[in-house]
Write a protein that binds this DNA or RNA. Structure first.
Lengths: 250, 250
DNA sequence: CGTGTGTTTGATGAATTTCAAAGCAGGTGG
DNA sequence: CCACCTGCTTTGAAATTCATCAAACACACG
């Protein structure tokens, strides 16, 4: 609760050094001492670049770090034994990768960069050690994990109950909202993923995605040329997804 | 690492007092002192009965406790704003409920007892406090949360990539394996949920579930009468679900 | 022994996949 | 600078899967 001057300075320095990192955002609301902030700082000092198309990690790799996306865009996917791919998420600036690895100490999915990207590795054992001394950090890690569960349940609702048009509308709204939260336009943005990746994420074929895009275009809800998205009618788009759950992540 | 006699005794007493609680199982592998075990004991001393059809908690209720299922069977579900229901999971003896509430301090789903059941409430704030002093407890809580994420990703693969027959086969195998792990027969068990609940879980209609059951019956893979299941050909059933992911939870 | 809830099966129709072919864009090398 | 190539996208037509509607059935419970 006590927010002395020097501490705030530290926090801002820190924020500048790793803008929009999830971990940081989660730590900001709580009172940390200068020393604590410095310890946290050592955790996330590094940067790693990942080229477009390259894997940050693959299923089965041993867990070393969680990753906060600093720049760029990732997709995560699981593979079935017979080769079918399910995209489980897209991660943008300020979002976290690797949480599913904690369960077995091995990553349970593939994380692929969709464009040239940059991440902050957060060595997990250090994070756990630090979290022992910083209860608020631990609490926020718990929250982060729990949020991921809620997000996944929303996706289950999507795949289990919504038709193709509703899924695509929900997907676009979700992207729009997340971009907005990070200071980007919520009405005008670029898709970083292929139709096929969107389809896999939404449990549909790429051709179906194309057709649904055509529908949204015909209804003048979005202007979608290639990967450039302009949302023309946000309320109209929302209305297409009444099916979508608590206003949490949509 | 040091497992002195008295400590083991404590652990066994504890285990008897709350057989098959997830939390406990997660704590067993690690070295706890007698005092620590006692503190843990105070957390999970209570029992709460939940009648068939009753809600353990509902979406929006403030998070007080996580719950370990001691006896019985639950389903969790989320509701879309326009009333569509998605079952997000079935929880049996020894499994945990409420993890999704950590993210907002409010439960994000409804937990309904499918038969007369009994749970151990684990007051969350106490758990977090205790976890500060017991790093291994904290680690295991992290793992528990991460496991749930992995499970959800497997479900996404199911809903996104598998046809109706494969989904049902996967569902039965999953139940079979979880029952087996808890000492019950993996070949002969009773479904605690309706066809409709199975359908909602698998993203299908109840009629489709009925038809898929008929298919499995025709192929002599299972003998399924009403809610009584006898698995006749486990390898054959497995083969139906090649699509299913890492052998983790299936 | 009726009543209600849950299950099964059939017939029909709608939504999505599959297969196929053409169009478009960006990048490379002649 | 243009031609070509490759990968991604779009659109059409046919096939398939699943949902919907409807009716009969089974079972448990009061």
């Amino acid at each position: 609760m006590s927010d002395s001057e020097p501490q705030l300075l530290h926090l801002h320095t820190l924020k500048a050094s790793c803008a929009s990192c999830s971990v940081l955002e989660l730590c900001l609301p709580i009172g940390l001492t200068g020393v604590e902030v410095e310890r946290l700082d050592t955790l996330i000092a590094q940067r790693v670049k990942v080229k477009k198309g390259a894997a940050l990690y693959r299923t089965g790799d041993p867990l070393r770090s969680l990753y906060a996306v600093r720049l760029g865009f990732f997709k995560t996917s699981v593979l079935s034994v017979d080769g079918r791919e399910q995209v489980t998420g897209f991660q943008m600036q300020g979002e976290m990768l690797g949480l599913d690895a904690i369960s077995t100490d091995h990553y349970a999915c593939n994380a692929i960069a969709l464009e040239d990207s940059e991440v902050c590795p957060i060595p997990f054992s250090n994070l756990e050690k630090l979290a022992r001394d910083l209860p608020s950090l631990q609490h926020n890690l718990n929250k982060l994990l729990s949020q991921e569960i809620v997000r996944d349940h929303d996706m289950l609702l999507m795949l289990g109950n919504m038709n193709a048009d509703e899924r695509l509308a929900g997907f676009l709204l979700n992207l729009s909202q997340r971009l907005n939260r990070r200071g980007y336009s919520s009405r005008d943005f670029v898709l970083r993923m292929s139709r096929e990746a969107i389809g896999s994420y939404l449990g549909l074929r790429l051709e179906t995605i194309c057709r649904c895009i055509a529908h949204l275009r015909e209804e003048n809800l979005v202007d979608l040329q290639g990967r450039n998205v302009k949302i023309l009618d946000l309320p109209g788009l929302r209305q297409k997804v009444t099916g979508c759950h608590r206003h949490t992540e949509l």
